[in-house]
Design a protein around this nucleic acid. Structure first.
Lengths: 231, 231
DNA sequence: GGTTGTCGGATTGTCGACATTATTGAGGAT
DNA sequence: ATCCTCAATAATGTCGACAATCCGACAACC
């Protein structure tokens, strides 16, 4: 390096950058579960200072994506199978509440956006585009959160979702799942459109029960072939 | 002098200390809502370095007790009235789930501890010891979380509780509230003892509905006399 | 008179340096 | 062979220094 003597300009927002990129890296699987996150290495890799990485790690620890042990560093948090189910259970509870609220509060604009998403979802199912479907799925739920107008619950649900991303990729691989998922989403949409709170909650609970079931299936599959474990 | 002062020995666990004391300070009202938390001042006050304070602030921000704006520092987060109600709503949802689980999973040891707490609660009510009652109240709920054996939900509920501490002190001041609260807790305990999941959930929902109602009362009271605002 | 520009103090954001603490591995004793 | 001891190494925890940024005040300008 030619300019080793010059101090690198302190890039502003390095902290935020480190947080965003680390989070992204964990979610996308670039950093494997249980992988050790050595501050200096990560800092080098992300092109930021150690301080920024440190702050990001604290945030991610509080968020549950990373475990931070005193004097022993950080590692990518491995969400145990049991914990994944716990998370899904809580998510189910909260999303049921949000769906109920959304049914009574959704305005025409909300419903229009939801309809668009559902239409597009069907298109992706027809095209066997599982990834695209998955993205729309996330968008569908987010629209409901927005319609429910409940910042606290939305924040928690979003945080939970990010923790269980690891298994997200597995669940969409189940044969026939997307078709059924689509029908479940359509049912939720119908209930919301009719402003029927009970039906919306019920449809959401039914949907997430299916998701839980699929999650169990995915866990059993992974137990047979844990690709991210050595040996 | 070569080194004008001996460097203060780097107190181990300063980070953890700062976090704990800041948290305590906010919960106990030493730091008022909306008060600015200047890193240097807080560091001086707590007798730790600025780094430790910084880490603590990031944690508390993620936890929702503090807001952290880029380049603009930290302030004690003021939980709006609306948000307090939102928090209580989520808490109600989650605690209902936990009570249901606890009903089926509670072992004799759990029930014994719960009984002790209830007995002691009645004693405090007789002695008009509202503060002592409030502590036991917290303990009662924590025991249920433990019996439910659901780490994820327990963590979230605990975090929510810490956010709404500000109004906690107000709610226990409502005349006649402790007596009714005691009866509600006894109902929950009975349901748990009978391992009746439906009854436990129902009793918990009823209890927290009362808490929400009391919270609304407290909010109205504070709106009339907001002691923490200047002027 | 109201808007815009800019100076200075205060505060945050970042870095490198150093102390502290875990971990590893080689060598020796039992 | 197994278990200690204890350096050597690696990584974390903390600090002070400095740059970047924000905010209010005051001045200059239309």
């Amino acid at each position: 390096m030619a300019r080793s003597a010059f101090r690198e300009p302190a890039v502003p927002e390095a902290g935020h950058t480190a947080y965003r990129r680390l989070r992204e890296g964990i979610a996308s699987g670039q950093f494997h579960p249980n992988e050790r996150l050595v501050e200096a290495s990560v800092a080098m890799r992300l092109g930021v200072g150690r301080t920024a990485v440190r702050a990001a790690l604290v945030r991610l620890d509080q968020e549950g994506l990373v475990t931070l042990e005193p004097n022993r560093g950080a590692r990518v948090r491995l969400i145990s199978d049991r914990e994944a189910l716990e998370i899904e259970e809580v998510r189910s509870t909260l999303e049921a509440m949000l769906a109920r609220r959304a049914a009574t509060r959704a305005v025409p604009a909300d419903l229009r956006e939801l309809r668009q998403v559902v239409v597009e979802m069907r298109r992706r199912v027809d095209k066997k585009d599982a990834i695209g479907y998955s993205d729309l799925n996330a968008r569908f739920h987010q629209l409901i959160w927005a319609a429910a107008d409940h910042a606290t619950a939305s924040r928690l649900v979003g945080s939970l979702k990010s923790q269980s991303i690891r298994l997200q990729y597995q669940t969409i691989l189940r044969p026939g799942r997307t078709e059924r998922s689509l029908r479940e989403h359509e049912a939720i949409f119908s209930a919301l459109k009719a402003h029927d709170a009970d039906a919306a909650e019920e449809a959401m609970v039914a949907h997430l029960a299916e998701v839980q079931e699929t999650l169990r299936w995915a866990i059993d599959g992974l137990r047979a072939a844990p690709s991210w474990l050595p040996g």
